[in-house]
């Protein structure tokens, strides 16, 4: 079992961070199911990609720092990487959807610039 010698308040803090992050991620995935149109649904996964990831990574850094007795900031790299790549992913997906909708003349297609 990990964290047997950890103070109880630290364990609660780590669990609170991880659970809140996971809850935001789950809400984002729920939005993927519940929202009606594609352009609405693209907003949903950003919940997990921003606050969800940030909270879970903070919890992970806190826990590993306490366990190893030194500052572990490695997980921040995942955060940096995700911050830089998520806009590219979503932008390309939105562009692809807009392109197809305009091409097919669908009613929900975005207006021309």
């Amino acid at each position: 079992m990990t964290g047997a010698d950890l103070p109880v308040w630290a364990a609660w803090l780590v669990v609170a961070l991880a659970l809140t992050g996971a809850a935001f991620s789950l809400t984002g995935a729920l939005g993927l199911v519940r929202l009606r149109t594609f352009y609405e649904r693209v907003h949903a996964p950003t919940l997990g990609a921003t606050l969800g990831t940030a909270l879970i990574l903070c919890g992970s850094m806190l826990l590993l720092s306490l366990l190893e007795g030194r500052l572990v900031l490695r997980d921040a790299l995942i955060g940096v990487f995700l911050t830089v790549t998520t806009p590219v992913t979503l932008l390309l997906l939105a562009r692809a959807a807009a392109h197809r909708d305009r091409h097919e003349g669908n009613p929900g297609a975005p207006p021309k610039l």
């Binding site: 907003h43 998520t86 806009p87």
Partner: peptide, 16 residues
């Protein structure tokens, strides 16, 4: 573009 993506609720679709 990073800012607008990082705030859910806004989505960058196209820039001319």
């Amino acid at each position: 573009s990073i800012i607008l993506t990082a705030t859910p609720g806004t989505l960058w679709v196209q820039y001319d």
